[in-house]
Amino acid sequence: MNTTQLQALIGTLVVLGMLVLIALPAVIGALHDRRVDRQLREAAERQAAIDGPRPERRTSGSASRRFARTA
């Protein structure tokens, strides 16, 4: 391996290392969000098991429109 190939290898490793450093926070955040979603889903399932079955709410085709009161 000559000097040019070694410099190319070092440059490639530096670029890949920088890419990992930039992408790592996003990956950690996505994994954290998935964990929180899973915990919320499990908590809702536990609460539903404690409360028992709920009667189904009928939903209309359109959303209700509520307007803020102006003072």
Rank of each mutant, 00 (worst) to 15 (best):
residue 57 R to I: 13
residue 35 R to F: 09
residue 59 T to Q: 14
residue 30 A to L: 09
residue 31 L to P: 00
residue 67 F to Y: 14
residue 1 M to K: 01
residue 40 L to E: 15
residue 27 V to L: 08
residue 27 V to E: 00
residue 17 G to N: 11
residue 55 P to L: 10
residue 58 R to C: 03
residue 13 L to Q: 05
residue 31 L to F: 06
residue 9 L to C: 06
residue 11 G to C: 03
residue 14 V to H: 05
residue 66 R to F: 14
residue 20 V to Q: 01
residue 15 V to D: 03
residue 58 R to E: 11
residue 8 A to E: 14
residue 49 A to P: 01
residue 62 S to L: 14
residue 48 A to Y: 04
residue 28 I to M: 01
residue 71 A to I: 13
residue 13 L to K: 04
residue 28 I to H: 00
residue 38 R to Q: 15
residue 9 L to D: 13
residue 50 I to N: 06
residue 5 Q to E: 15
residue 43 A to E: 13
residue 27 V to D: 00
residue 54 R to L: 10
residue 71 A to H: 15
residue 30 A to V: 07
residue 29 G to W: 05
residue 55 P to G: 05
residue 64 S to N: 12
residue 9 L to F: 07
residue 4 T to Q: 06
residue 55 P to R: 07
residue 67 F to G: 01
residue 2 N to H: 09
residue 33 D to A: 11
residue 4 T to D: 12
residue 63 A to I: 10
residue 55 P to K: 09
residue 69 R to M: 12
residue 43 A to M: 10
residue 19 L to V: 02
residue 68 A to W: 14
residue 27 V to W: 01
residue 8 A to S: 04
residue 25 P to G: 03
residue 70 T to W: 14
residue 47 Q to F: 02
residue 47 Q to W: 01
residue 65 R to T: 13
residue 54 R to P: 01
residue 68 A to S: 14
residue 55 P to Y: 05
residue 48 A to I: 02
residue 39 Q to V: 04
residue 18 M to C: 13
residue 31 L to I: 07
residue 15 V to Q: 09
residue 63 A to V: 10
residue 3 T to K: 02
residue 7 Q to M: 12
residue 43 A to D: 12
residue 36 V to R: 15
residue 61 G to V: 07
residue 14 V to M: 09
residue 2 N to W: 05
residue 54 R to E: 07
residue 31 L to G: 06
residue 50 I to W: 06
residue 3 T to E: 10
residue 3 T to Y: 03
residue 1 M to V: 04
residue 5 Q to T: 11
residue 46 R to A: 11
residue 42 E to M: 08
